[in-house]
Computed example of a mutant assay.
Amino acid sequence: MLRRDRRLLLALPALLLTAGCFGTPRADEALEVYELKTGYDDGGVEAGQNRLLPTVSFKLRNKASRSINSVQVNAVFRVLEDPEELGSQSVWAIDYQGLASGQSVGPFVMRSRFGYSGEQARVQMFQHQGFKDVVVQVFAKQGGNQWVKLTEQVVDRQLLAIAPAPAKAAQ
């Protein structure tokens, strides 16, 4: 009986190591954000004022040696040095069929629903004394795991001309 227990104790670490090699990698370890562009998108006119919406566009690459599946991404926009969220958007980035090692997905275009508005031309709004920089944080969540931060960047003070990418909203 003692011998069997000893063999089991010796085999257990090998089994755990093997199981870890075949599991799904963590999103922050597997996913690389690239071709990241930030700026402000034309939010149209509301109540006679021009609107600017902070926007991020990016692609994801699976840099892990294994496939990753069921990943949501969330872009959170905040005014720099303000803990209050300005806006966010979540989308399904990778479905249950997965993204193979070395493969890419995107681009994803994500915007805050809230931004800046003013009577002046959009490009002039960046020079207004009330304009404050916005930071965007991109998070990922794989399956039932916790959200993990993939990247963070101050949104560039530039107008973007990015066509909206079709994306399924995360539930």
Rank of each mutant, 00 (worst) to 15 (best):
M110Q: 08
G20M: 02
E119C: 06
Q129G: 12
P107G: 05
E81L: 14
V91E: 04
A75N: 01
L86E: 02
A169Q: 14
G87C: 09
V154E: 07
Q120N: 12
Q129L: 13
A165R: 14
T151R: 00
Y40Q: 05
W92R: 12
A161E: 12
S112T: 09
L160M: 04
G23D: 08
Q103P: 04
A30M: 02
T18W: 11
M110V: 04
I68Q: 03
W147P: 07
P166E: 14
E35R: 03
R66Q: 15
L2G: 14
R61S: 06
G48M: 14
P166L: 13
E152D: 09
P13Y: 04
L53V: 15
V76W: 00
F58Q: 13
V73F: 00
R7A: 04
L2I: 11
S57Y: 02
V73P: 01
G23L: 13
D95E: 07
Y116V: 09
L10F: 04
E35D: 11
I94K: 03
F139M: 10
F131S: 14
V73K: 00
E32L: 13
S117F: 11
K168P: 03
A11M: 02
T55I: 11
R7M: 08
V91H: 03
K132W: 10
M110H: 02
S67Q: 09
R4G: 01
Q137F: 12
V91Y: 03
R26S: 10
A64F: 09
F139E: 11
L31M: 06
Q97P: 00
R51G: 08
G39P: 05
G39N: 09
E81N: 15
R6P: 00
V123F: 04
A93L: 00
N69A: 15
K132Y: 06
K63I: 07
V71Y: 01
Q72Y: 08
A121L: 13
I68L: 07
V45G: 12
R157I: 03
F139Y: 14
T55F: 09
M125R: 11
M1S: 08
V76D: 02
A121F: 07
K132C: 07
L12T: 04
S104H: 12
E85L: 11
L2S: 10
P25Q: 03
E119F: 12
D5Y: 06
L12S: 01
R157N: 11
R4P: 00
I94Y: 03
S117M: 09
S112V: 13
L9D: 12
V148E: 13
G39C: 10
Q158S: 13
A14N: 02
Q124F: 04
L9T: 04
E29L: 05
S117I: 02
L159I: 09
V45S: 10
G102R: 01
N74M: 01
D42H: 13
A47L: 13
G98K: 02
Q171F: 15
Q89G: 01
M110S: 02
R6A: 14
E152A: 14
M110I: 07
L10Q: 06
R3G: 03
A163Y: 06
L80M: 12
G106P: 03
D95Y: 07
A100I: 06
P166R: 15
F139R: 07
N74H: 02
Y40R: 06
A167E: 07
G130Q: 14
L15V: 15
V136W: 07
S70L: 08
N69I: 04
I94T: 01
V33Q: 05
